Computed example of a mutant assay.
Amino acid sequence: MIELGHSVFMYYFYHQGEHPVHQSYIKYNVPFVNEIENQKGNFLILPETFLEPIFDKNYSAIKKIVWWLSVTNYEIVLNNAKEAVKHKKFYSLKSRLFPNKYKTLPTITKLKLKGVLNLAHSHFSLDFLTRNEMDIIGKISDYMSDSFYERIDSSTLKEDILLYNPKKNGEYLDSIMSKSQHLNWKPLVNMSPDEVAIWMNKSKLYVDFGYHPGQERMPREAILMKCCVVTGSKGSAAYQDDVPVPTGFKFDDSKDSAEKVIRRLEQTLANFDEDTKLFKDYRIRIIAEKANFNKAVKLVFGGSENN
């Protein structure tokens, strides 16, 4: 947005002062402020998991935009907020008699009443916003960091290794692994980005049956490092526009047996050189994400005459 000629600043709600920027983000040189200018001509862009400012009188004039990075995380935060207040004595009665007192629960109805504008991040979130008749101003996804591409090593020989993230996967993958102990499974845990890259460069498969709250980063990293990717169909993974893996590489844990998945894994390990070609279009699409991101930002927010 700065490159498009806009006056843009970060505001850190929890880390203010002279040095609020995390070490990992200093390289972006984005200016920050310790106070939000509550004016009608300004916009406040918020993630879907932090919507309290929408109901704060200190930000009554500024126009709010919610960037829906994860529908799932929004629902988790909202449900937690509901659980926190519903145990209060006579909450149900009080919330009806004194609705203003309980207006900070960011339900879809209340967000619409506040005139909030909405940005989708994935087709999953776009579908969610459309079904709820929200005021949608566009869709802006993300892209792989330039520094990531420096970790790609196409000269590394591929081995019969299957990567997975134990923090994301559950009983379905546990069942598959217990029945395929002849395969070489490698958990990506307690690793630096460089270490993850080393394993992705030399592995043939990345398996992800976790819930996809949005467009997940690691499956895309794996594809760029010439891994074949097998996923489930939860969250955004249910949308082929979000996770466009080839036919036969996406499974439904409520319908597909562990044996069916194992057959796919074995076939891909044996025919890797051919199967990896099936991911070419997805790989090209990932490479184009940065250009598409820039176009989407300009489409939503416009640019100055010189940009």
Score class of each variant (00 low, 15 high):
E3K: 15
Y28K: 02
N29D: 12
V30Y: 03
P31I: 01
E35Y: 12
L44A: 06
L44S: 03
I45Q: 02
I45W: 02
P53K: 08
D56I: 05
N58L: 14
A61W: 06
I62N: 07
K63R: 10
V66Y: 01
V66K: 03
W68H: 05
E75T: 03
I76E: 02
A81T: 11
E83M: 05
A84N: 08
F90G: 00
K94A: 13
F98N: 08
N100K: 15
N100Q: 14
Y102D: 03
K103M: 10
T107I: 00
K112F: 09
K114H: 07
L119Y: 02
F124P: 11
F128L: 11
N132V: 06
E133I: 08
I136A: 02
Y143W: 12
D146V: 06
E150H: 15
S155A: 08
S155D: 03
K158V: 05
D160F: 09
E171C: 03
Y172K: 11
L173C: 06
S178D: 07
S180A: 12
S180F: 08
L183M: 04
K186Q: 10
S192I: 04
I198E: 14
S203L: 00
Y206M: 09
Y206L: 13
D208C: 09
F209Y: 05
Y211L: 14
G214I: 07
R217D: 10
R220V: 07
K226H: 04
C227W: 00
V229T: 10
V230L: 08
A237M: 11
D242T: 07
K250N: 10
A258W: 11
A258L: 11
E259F: 09
K260Y: 10
I262W: 01
R264S: 10
E266F: 09
K277W: 00
R285N: 13
R285T: 14
R285M: 15
I286E: 10
A291R: 14
F293D: 11
K295S: 13
A296W: 05
V300A: 10
E305A: 14
N306G: 13
